[in-house]
């Protein structure tokens, strides 16, 4: 049997807004993926550790506090450092348009803002994660 796509949905930093992360986690699960949700208040190290332990294909980061330029980038850099550069990183939250190209440059493959249909996220992941 084909292995399901494994996704880590993570909330780095102190931000407590978890509505979006939980909805996406559930939607990805309903779309046939294996989803692990970290819960709140994760450091970059904790997120990367979980990604390695769970052997995921995708790390989905959610932040609504505005700390994405620091914390998304921390996670991306650390994943790379740990030899996990083939992991697809996507992000979502309250992220100003002008930050998106900078995040992409740092390895966050796509950013999904408010109003994104869940299907758009799962379709994107399915397209990107080839098996």
């Amino acid at each position: 049997m084909e292995r399901k796509i494994r996704v880590l949905v993570a909330k780095p930093g102190l931000d407590g807004h978890d509505r979006g992360a939980k909805i996406v986690a559930r939607a990805l699960r309903d779309a046939g993926m294996e989803v692990i949700y970290t819960g709140l208040h994760q450091t970059a190290e904790m997120v990367v550790e979980a990604a390695i332990q769970e052997d995921v294909d995708v790390v989905g980061l959610s932040l609504l506090s505005g700390a994405h330029m620091t914390l998304f980038v921390d996670v991306a850099k650390l994943l790379k450092k740990k030899g996990m550069s083939d992991v697809l990183i996507v992000g979502g939250g309250i992220i100003p348009e002008e930050d998106v190209p900078k995040l992409k440059k740092e390895g966050i493959s796509a950013v999904f803002g408010p109003g994104t249909p869940c299907d758009e996220i799962s379709d994107y992941i399915k397209k990107k994660v080839k098996r």
Binding site: L14, L64, A67, M69, L71
Partner: peptide
């Protein structure tokens, strides 16, 4: 966020969050 969690700005957990929301 650091203030909401009772951390000073120079605490490691405050990284990236200063003055953000």
């Amino acid at each position: 966020y650091p203030t909401l969690y009772g951390y000073d700005t120079d605490h490691p957990m405050s990284r990236g969050e200063f003055g953000k929301c």
